[in-house]
Each structure stands twice: as C-alpha cells, then as structure tokens.
Design a protein around this nucleic acid. Structure first.
Length: 836
RNA sequence: GCCGGAGUGCUGAAAUUGGUAAACAGGAUGGACUCAAAAUCCAUUGCCCGUAAGGGCUUGAGGGUUCGAAUCCCUCCUCCGGCACCA
C-alpha cells in the first residue's frame, strides 16, 4: 500500500541529516544558481501558489544536481513592509513577534513539501545583520549623489489619517475604509533610477527573459525621442516644451501648462489671477481618481500671457490645463488641435484656432477630416511644406538647433523611485539631519567657503542635501528600535518620530546635536539585493565576499510572478547595475534567465481569499494525499506560466497515478530485462524530459510519465527492473519521496552506506540509437486529406512508397480513373496525391 | 485608447521550422468485483448520418495563401494581463 504519510517524513528527516542539498562555495563542478522569489511570510501560511512554483523549480534543481552541477537553491524571508505591519496591528501583537511566528510556520510547511532548499543559507530581511547591508547600499547610493529629497504627492486617506502605498489604493479609494484618497505633498527621499533608464532598456538584450517581460519593462521606462522647443517669453526668458511631433509646429495655436508648473504665477496676468486661482483650487480638490478615471474632459483656463512660436514668430496664448502632467516633459505641451485628439477637443471647447499642417500622403483634396494624427506630408509650413513628417522632424529640429531655439531631447515615463515610507516596519534610513552641518554645506555651495579647506569632508550626497549626514559604516546597522506603539501616526509621520531618545543623537560629522531620519525604507529595499546575500549569508565584513559573488553570480535561473516585472525585477536590476559600477557586483545584470509562473486560483475560478472561504490549505493536502501528490498535481494542472483554477478531481487523478505506479514497480521487479518496446519508450521519455524541462513544460512531462505507466500496466509481462529503475531516476526530481522509497526497495544494499541516496545517483542519459525507430507511420493523403496510414520502413524512397500505396485497395478506390496531377512526398512522413 | 497574450471536446489541456487535431488527466455512460458503498479494474466517449461497413463535419467568425492551415497573412468578435491624458 502506498502510504505517503509514512514515507514522506522519513525521507525528509534523512535528507536533512545527510545535508544533501548544501551548496558548496567553490567546486570543480560547474555552478548553477537557481532562485525562487522569497516569500513574504504571511499570517495565512503557505499558499498553494507557492507550492506550484517552488516544486517546479525544485525539480529543476534536483535534476541539475544529478547532472553534476554544484547547485545553489536557497530560500529566505521578505518580512518587512506594510502587510506585516497591518497583520501585527490586526492581531495586536508586535510585528517582530508575528513575523518570527509566521516564519516558523512557513518553514514547517516548506519542509513538509520535501523541497531541496539549502537551509544553511536562510536569510531574513528584518534581521539587523541583513539590513545592515541594505542600509549600506543606500548610503553608497547617497554618497554617489543618486539620492535626493523632493516634494511629491502621496496618497493620503483622510479618514485613516495615513499615507497609503499605491498598492493600497483600490479604484481611487482607501483599501481599508473605502474613503476617496487625496493627494498630499510630502518631502520624500528619492532614488535616481532614471539615471539608469537607458542601460535598463539596452541591457535587456543580454538576458534571457520572456519577451513579454522585456516589453513590459521597456514600456514602463517609456523612452521617447523628440524635440525641446523654446517658446520666447518676455525679457529674453524662454519656456521649453517637449514634443515628439515637431513637424506639426506650424499648427501650434496655444501652449498648455500643468497646474503645478512653476511659472504659473509669473505668467498669470493681473486680470486673470482670480480665475486661475479658482481653477487650480478646483483641480486640487479633485482626487486623482476623478482626474484620470471619471473626468476625461479636458479643462483649462487662460493665463492672459502669450509667447512667441520660434518657427514663425506667431503670438501663442498660454493656458493652464488639467490634462498636462507636471512631471513629464517639463510640464508643458504645445497644442496642435489639427493633429492631436486631446488638443482638438481642448481647442473645440475653448474656441482655439485649428490649423491643418499635415496631410495624408496620396491625398490632395482639402476636405481632410481633422484631427489627422498620423504622419503625412507638411502643408502650410513655410519652407518645410512638402516634406514628409519624418524628414520634417529632422529638418525643423536642425533649424531650431542652429538658432539656439531648440534641441533634440529624450523623455522617459519612468519616474524616480520614492524611497521613504512613514511607517514603522521597515529598515531605518541611515541618515541624520544636522543644522550646523547644513550651514557649513550652504557656505561651501555659495562659494564663501572653500571645500578643500573644510575639516569635515562632505560626500556628494551630503553636498546635494544640505544638513543630511551619512551614518558612518562602522555604526551600521541603525537598528529599528522596539516600540510599543507601531501604528501609523495622525500626523502622517513615521511612529519612530515619537521616540525622542532615539531621534536625538550626535552628528557623526561635527559632533553637535542632530536628529535621525524617522522615515523607513519601502519593502522593495531588502528584496533588491537578497540574491547576492545567499552567496555568503553570514558575512559581517561585506554584503558578501567578492570571491563568492564572483563564483555564484549571476543567478542562472530566476523564477517569479509577472506582477513583479515593473517593480522588484526593475529595482533589483537597477541596484545590481549600481553595485557593479562601484565594483561590488561582478556583472551588470543579476539574472541570466527569468521565467514566470501563473497564479493558482480557487476552484471557483476566483482568487483564493479567506473572506470567500475558498482557500486550499497545503497542509491538508499533504496530510491526506502526500507532498508528492501535491507537487505532481501542481506541475500537471496546466501550462506553468498560466493562471489555473484548483481542481480536487484533478488532484485525485494524480493520487491514483502515484498509487498505480507504486503497485507497478513493486510487481515488476523480478524480471530483470524489459522488452524493446518498454525500454525504448522509457528512453523516449528520458529525451522528452530533457527537452521539456528547459522550457518549463512540466505538464507534458507528467503526462509522459502517466503514458509510460499506462503502457507498462497494459504490458506487465514485458516490464523489467531496468525500465522501472530508469523511471525512478527520471521521476525522482518531480516526486522525490516515492521515488527514493521505491529505489531503496530495489537497492537495499546501497543504503547500507548511510550517506547514500537516490539523489547521489547520476541523471540517466537516453540512448539515441535505441530510440531511433526502424519504421514510421506513413500518412497517405488524397488532396491533402488523410485517407490511410501504413507502417513503412524508415528512409524509404518516393518510388518505393508510391508503388506500396497505389496498390492499396482503399487508395485505388479514391483515385479510380482520375488523373494524378501531382505527388507531394515528405520523407519519413507522408505522401499526398493531388487528383482532379 | 495604446501595448502584449490567448480563443481547440462537457472540463484542465496536448499538438507551433505548415503535414495523423484532441496526447495525458478529469467528468460521463456501461460493465466486473461487492449484500452494499468506497477503492480497484475493463470498455466507450469531438460532433452529425448510419444497425454496421462506411461517410461527412470540426480548432472564436469571415476571407486569403498552399497539394495541405489550430499553426502563416488580412478583417472582425470575445476574453485575460499591463499601461493609461506621457504631448
């Protein structure tokens, strides 16, 4: 009887004792670093979705070990962040406590699945020994001038009185209480990820990611090429405007500024002051949701000022409009109503002129419907009329460039990374604010004090952010103090701000009183470099030893969810590039190959959630049917990268299969040799697995195993030990417990060595000679329709086959007295007679 | 709106350098075993006509290329994912 609850814990214990999955730093074997996204240890426990991707990558890790690789397959905990904080608040227990409790539970669950993680390298982002290095990396970014402070709007829930992360805003409302979210301006730490935008796009060429992921990252970064045009204001001031369609510049009939544009006040004339003020007030009161989702109508107000179009000296009115984004392209747009949909609507609404300056190619008539938004041929554009849009963009930009009125320009949609959170449960930002140092830095900056003669030396970040001073490396980590009240505060400040004792400190630069930064890092911080820490998890001199980094990095295969494409995956690539630039990382890309898994939905097709009561608990499945059943089922359920609903019936099918296989292998071992049919079939399966596993086609691999077991079941007398042994070796990465148990029953003598395990065996190689078929099924078609098939000797010539097939009764009947027009012959595949 | 992906039996799905459509599993139906149920085993199962032999049809819809299309091209519909006033 197959009894997984008996054999599984037994082997899990043995494997742990043998330390069989430990990765060795440095080895003559080739290295293979296989990585799964480390989980956030939630209070709900392990999700069957974790099991899906972890068992799949576990199978790959196990196979690679058997193939002779020195495999690193580590695991850890991403335990900082809002969910942990909220869970702690909900359960009224300190996050430190809940996190360690949840980790213990997760660990037990992962171990009960028999995953081959190297537990000696377990890491935890909330461990001060770990986040010391998260803080260190932040300080390096600061030191190199990539960190700055900016006033940016955050999501503010007026009811809960806290700042919300974007992920917590659902359809413009607070996730918890449903109150519409407002924008509040707050000073935040920013990291200049935009400085790496080009490299983040360019280097995608070097890596093996799904095209979908690459495209999504490229779109997210959103690079567009265009021209910055300087519109003349009064007193030789200029207003720069970015456009990708400089070919339409003769059609400009207004400029529109974002409401938050810095020149709004200057440009508003006295008589328009009141109107503009009211308008901006109205915009501010609109929530972001209303501005983007509900109200697609473009509104605006005239400032009363004009500027001069540099191309033709035309006088252009300057407006303010809510459809212009402040943070993109300088926050100003040239309105070309004839050739842009939004501008057209705006112009119609406010009675602005509409000019046609581009016409479709091959069209001469004047009855052209505007707006015409595609490229075409320029008209009404002075000396540039007649040029194609493409040519005109080039020529006009050049014309402007020569006169100092414009230049080529590149814009990105990617914004800098908002790096501070006003929450408790995160890494403290290792900076202090010192009034005294601020004065000194300001003096240096104003030139009244020479930087070289200054006693305390300031780094680039300190000069860029006057008053903000780095904590010296020797004083890291800045530990998160234990507090009683970790709830978000009414003021929107981090709860750390209330701990006077912690906040007030000595400035490490000048020794005078200073105060600590009380904001913490976002939960993306710790996960942006964790894969490096696995190479050397307990190093206290560096984030990891450079030789170990050089040996293990880059990650050879990284699997994770699609939802991390534009956040975690982009952030961690950015940090790795930065660490490469300062000589810490050995390459400029962290992951060689990325694959992604689909989510596991509930049986009803909806997302699993406690409130819907449709959650599948892996513990129960393991208890009832065993870890092997769960693992194999989750690999079999469907294509790996696709979202799939759970099915208890499907799970049962896999359980039946394992039981069948158990019986078969115990019955068929007295016979040493299998028939050619059986042995050939297992070699074919061997080949299929080698091919399909690289493509993450786990479902077809499991189907292959089932097919083979069915074949054996129908031909029991032909099945021998040799086939079963090979099957066990092939099956072991997918269903490790049952395979090892049956292997032991086949080879009890080998297990006298206490160090022995099936996982110390070599991965079997298939014999290409053996699977080469002598015959094949010839498809006989008439006019492309299959009418007959016969077994034919391989490599038969067309002549041989023609005489063979034309003699057949069935074929004769079809052809009868009709004329054969053409014969199509595909070697070793088919013959097709075209008749009339 | 833009960008990406997909649409195949009752269900999850296989088949992609164009060449046997529906592998494998679930479900269903019938049968064996059983007092009975569970478990197990056997058979059937894309649809239509036919007792059968056999024939016809079939990969979201329509068109095209081809000896031959689930696969390539065009138009359209639907669903999923991402972005969303990015000038």
């Amino acid at each position: 009887m197959y009894n997984p609850s008996k054999i599984e814990p037994k082997w899990q214990k043995t494997w742990e004792k043998l330390d069989i999955y430990k990765a060795k730093d440095f080895s003559r074997k080739p290295k293979m670093y296989i990585l799964v996204e480390f989980p956030y240890p939630s209070g709900e426990g392990l999700h069957v979705g974790h099991c899906r991707s972890y068992s799949a990558l576990d199978a790959i890790a196990r196979k690679k070990r058997m193939e002779g690789y020195n495999v690193l397959f580590p695991i850890g905990w991403d335990a900082f962040g809002l969910p942990a904080e909220n869970y702690a608040i909900k359960t009224k227990s300190h996050p430190q406590k809940t996190v360690s409790k949840n980790i213990a539970n997760f660990k037990r669950q992962l171990k009960s699945l028999g995953l081959s993680f190297d537990w000696s390298r377990e890491i935890n982002t909330t461990d001060p020994k770990y986040y010391k290095w998260t803080q260190w990396i932040f300080l390096k970014l600061f030191e190199k001038g990539l960190v700055y402070r900016a006033e940016i709007p955050i999501n503010w829930c007026p009811s809960c009185k806290i700042g919300l992360a974007n992920e917590e805003v659902v359809q413009g409302k607070c996730e918890r209480c449903g109150t519409p979210v407002e924008k509040r301006i707050k000073k935040q730490w920013m990291i200049k990820i935009t400085a790496y935008a080009d490299r983040l796009i360019e280097d995608l060429k070097k890596v093996d990611y799904p095209e979908k992921v690459k495209l999504q990252q490229i779109n997210w970064i959103g690079k567009s090429y265009g021209t910055e045009v300087k519109f003349k204001l009064k007193k030789s001031h200029y207003l720069p405007v970015f456009t990708t369609r400089v070919d339409t510049i003769f059609g400009v009939t207004a400029l529109v500024l974002a409401p938050e544009h810095p020149l709004v006040n200057v440009l508003t004339t006295q008589e328009n002051k009141e109107k503009v003020k009211k308008y901006i007030e109205k915009i501010k009161n609109k929530s972001e949701f209303e501005r983007t989702k509900l109200e697609k109508k473009r509104t605006g107000v005239f400032t009363g000022s004009y500027c001069i179009n540099p191309i033709n000296e035309e006088k252009i009115p300057i407006w303010i409009g809510d459809y212009v984004i402040g943070s993109y392209g300088g926050g100003a747009v040239m309105v070309v109503p004839g050739h842009d949909k939004r501008d057209y609507e705006f112009a119609k609404r406010y009675g602005l002129k509409i000019k046609e300056v581009v016409r479709p190619k091959n069209q001469k008539s004047n009855k052209n419907t505007l707006p015409f938004v595609e490229d075409g041929i320029l008209v009404n554009s002075g000396e540039f009329s007649g040029l194609s849009s493409l040519k005109a963009r080039e020529k006009i930009t050049l014309w402007l460039e020569k006169r100092g009125l414009g230049r080529k320009s590149v814009q990105y949609k990617l914004r800098d990374w908002v790096f501070s959170r006003q929450h408790y449960w995160g890494e403290p930002i290792p900076l202090v604010y010192c009034e005294n140092c601020k004065k000194i830095v300001e003096k240096i900056k104003s030139g009244s004090s020479d930087i070289k003669s200054q006693k305390p030396k300031f780094n680039k970040g300190e000069l860029l952010n006057p008053g903000w001073i780095s904590i010296p490396e020797k004083d890291l980590p800045v530990e998160l103090p234990f507090v009683e009240k970790y709830q978000p505060t009414e003021t929107g400040e981090s709860p750390l701000a209330n701990i006077k004792k912690w906040v007030i400190c000595k400035c490490p630069k000048c020794g005078r009183q200073a105060r600590r930064e009380t904001d913490t890092m976002p939960n993306w911080a710790g996960s942006s470099w964790y894969f490096m820490r696995y190479t050397d998890p307990s190093n206290d001199k560096a984030l990891a030893n450079s030789k170990k980094l050089k040996y293990w990095m880059p990650v050879d295969w990284y699997n994770g969810g699609m939802e991390h494409t534009t956040l975690h995956l982009l952030y961690s690539r950015f940090w790795y590039k930065f660490l490469f630039d300062i000589g810490v990382a050995p390459q400029d890309e962290p992951y060689k190959k990325r694959t992604s898994h689909g989510v596991v939905l509930a049986e009803d097709g909806r997302k699993m959630s406690k409130s819907l009561g449709n959650v599948i608990n892996p513990d129960e499945i393991v208890k009832k049917y065993g870890a092997d059943t769960l693992r194999v089922y989750e690999m079999f359920m469907g294509p790996f990268d696709q979202a799939i609903a759970w099915s208890n019936k499907g799970l049962m099918g896999v359980y039946r299969f394992l039981k069948k296989f158990w019986k078969l292998s115990l019955e068929c071992t007295s016979n040493p040799k299998s028939s050619l049919k059986i042995i050939r079939s297992i070699h074919q399966l061997n080949k299929q697995i080698d091919k399909d596993l690289e493509k993450t086609k786990f479902n077809t691999i499991i189907a292959g195993f089932m097919k083979f077991v069915n074949l054996c079941g129908k031909n029991k007398k032909e099945v021998g030990r040799d086939a079963i042994e090979r099957m066990l070796l092939l099956f072991s990465p997918f269903a490790p417990h049952i395979s090892e148990e049956l292997w032991q029953r086949l080879h009890p003598e080998r297990y006298k060595d206490p160090e022995y395990s099936i996982f110390r065996e070599k991965w079997p190689k298939y014999d290409p000679e053996l699977i080469r078929e002598q015959t094949f099924t010839l498809i006989i078609q008439i006019n492309g329709k299959t009418r007959d098939k016969i077994e034919v000797k391989k490599d038969s010539s067309q002549k041989e086959i023609e005489s063979l097939t034309l003699g057949r009764e069935k074929i004769k009947k079809y052809i009868s007295n009709k004329k054969i027009e053409k014969v199509i012959f595909v070697k070793n595949k088919l013959i097709n007679f075209v008749i009339k």
